[in-house]
């Protein structure tokens, strides 16, 4: 087990440790937030009210592309932290930019998917299934959007100040956020898309 002195820079002050712990507690609250949206979805998924069901509108290929974009972005985000811990600013910024590009690709696919659904007559107002579907997916997509804005601001700060205890802590925290969004997506992929296609 690592001793205190061998911990990475982002844990180097008491304040940093507390901020990281605080963010983990926030993620706990996020888990519960998403669980309520999943609960709503599972209760309402059968209520299609003469509108389309999941297997009639989901496009498997597009869902797989979105999943791979987000999985890869989670990996490149972990590489960014790896570079940060090797004190490589250039590597850190490069992998953060790659992560953001993949996140942007995901968001582009998701927005196109929603537009496609609306053209098919599957809107937020169509049925209980679609209301809960768009609420769950939209909340996740909103988190991704927020993450992209947050990462942009952080990259500017890293470019100006380099890797300091403060920027290292901020970068580590956004990496936790980004991986968390990937975890939520794994459950959306499994319990919304695959489940919808199997049923």
């Amino acid at each position: 087990m690592a001793t205190e002195t061998s911990l990475p820079l982002e844990y180097s002050t008491k304040q940093n440790e507390m901020n990281i712990l605080g963010f983990w507690i926030f993620l706990g609250a996020e888990i519960v937030l998403f669980s309520t949206l999943f609960a709503g979805y599972f209760v309402l998924e059968g209520n299609t009210a003469n509108g389309p069901a999941g297997h009639e509108i989901f496009i498997f290929k597009d869902v797989m592309i979105q999943t791979f974009l987000l999985l890869t972005s989670s990996f490149t985000c972990s590489l960014a932290i790896y570079q940060m811990r090797n004190n490589n600013v250039k590597g850190l910024i490069t992998w953060l930019v790659v992560t953001m590009a993949l996140g942007l690709g995901f968001l582009y696919m998701e927005i196109n998917e929603f537009i496609h659904y609306v053209h098919e007559g599957a809107t937020l107002q169509t049925s209980g299934f679609l209301s809960s579907f768009f609420t769950l997916l939209g909340t996740h997509g909103l988190h991704v959007t927020l993450g992209l804005g947050w990462a942009t601001l952080l990259i500017i700060q890293i470019a100006r100040r380099g890797i300091t205890p403060v920027t290292a802590r901020k970068t580590f925290i956004i990496s936790l956020y980004w991986h968390f969004l990937d975890v939520v997506w794994i459950f959306i992929f499994t319990f919304v898309y695959l489940r919808g296609l199997v049923m």
């Binding site: 706990g28 888990i31 990496s175």
Partner: peptide
Amino acid sequence: MFMHINEGKSGMINTINIVYSVFIAAVIV
């Protein structure tokens, strides 16, 4: 592997917090 949940002095607290949140989530769903 990616979030290093066990890392740092609060590793155990992180783990307990996440396990508890998952329990609450499971109860809600």
